[in-house]
């Protein structure tokens, strides 16, 4: 008997003596929506508050994004080729933008600009999918990760976003900068992924 057959046989043996098996309870997702996190009706204002609560950087204009990059002395980075048309000329001035990530020199990218599929107001989360962000490294390797997300692509709560997962082989929800508290419980941001997570609705 191979391992698969052995496991299924043992599961059967374990469950057969049960006279009654627990039924699947009815699920009402409204029960786990957090009203205190959605005081503005699931709007971008709710997203902003919840995103900033996890140390995300919420911006509303490319001018503000330019200032952030200038202050961080970040002049060279990656931009998703599909987004280049969305970036104003004034923003691109003075920046070196690469359309691919060279795995041999990932430290040269101070920032990465990718498209988010959507955002979740309740949790302050941006959603990245392989379909929209083909190079996963662009959202991980640079210290500053900037996601541009369409203003109409906002889910109110986690369940709505779960219902939208679809067929993409890989979807990741990002809720703030990469962080750890492994060393004596002290919070440090920018462990393996970005230390600064920016969201700019467009």
């Amino acid at each position: 008997m191979n391992d698969r057959a052995r496991i299924f046989s043992a599961i059967n043996d374990a469950l057969t003596p049960l006279q009654e098996r627990a039924a699947l309870p009815e699920l009402d997702p409204a029960q786990w929506v957090c009203p205190s996190r959605l005081t503005e009706g699931g709007s971008w204002e709710d997203f902003r508050r919840n995103f900033e609560a996890v140390n995300g950087t919420f911006l509303t204009s490319f001018e503000a994004l330019s200032r952030l990059l200038r202050d961080a002395n970040a002049t060279e980075g990656y931009a998703d080729p599909g987004l280049l048309e969305e970036l104003p000329e004034t923003f691109r001035d003075g920046l070196t933008l690469h359309e691919t990530i060279d795995r041999g020199s990932i430290d040269r990218y101070a920032f990465g600009i990718t498209r988010a599929h959507a955002a979740i107001a309740e949790s302050g989360t941006v959603i990245l999918r392989d379909l929209d962000t083909p190079d996963r490294l662009a959202a991980l390797a640079p210290w500053i990760h900037i996601t541009l997300v369409a203003k109409e692509a906002l889910f109110s709560n986690v369940t709505e976003a779960i219902d939208d997962l679809g067929e993409d082989p890989n979807t990741v929800w990002v809720t703030g900068p990469s962080k750890t508290a492994d060393v004596e419980g002290i919070l440090i941001e920018g462990v393996h992924g970005p230390g600064i997570q920016v969201c700019l609705p467009i």
Partner: peptide, 30 residues
């Protein structure tokens, strides 16, 4: 909704990844 809050007091952990299968041929990494 329960895991992050119970484990670390976060409403969600920073990276929540949903993986259905290997990457699509047109994807660059993965």
């Amino acid at each position: 909704n329960l895991l992050g809050r119970s484990a670390t007091g976060q409403n969600l952990t920073v990276y929540t990844e949903f993986i259905r299968g290997p990457r699509q041929p047109e994807a660059i990494s993965g």
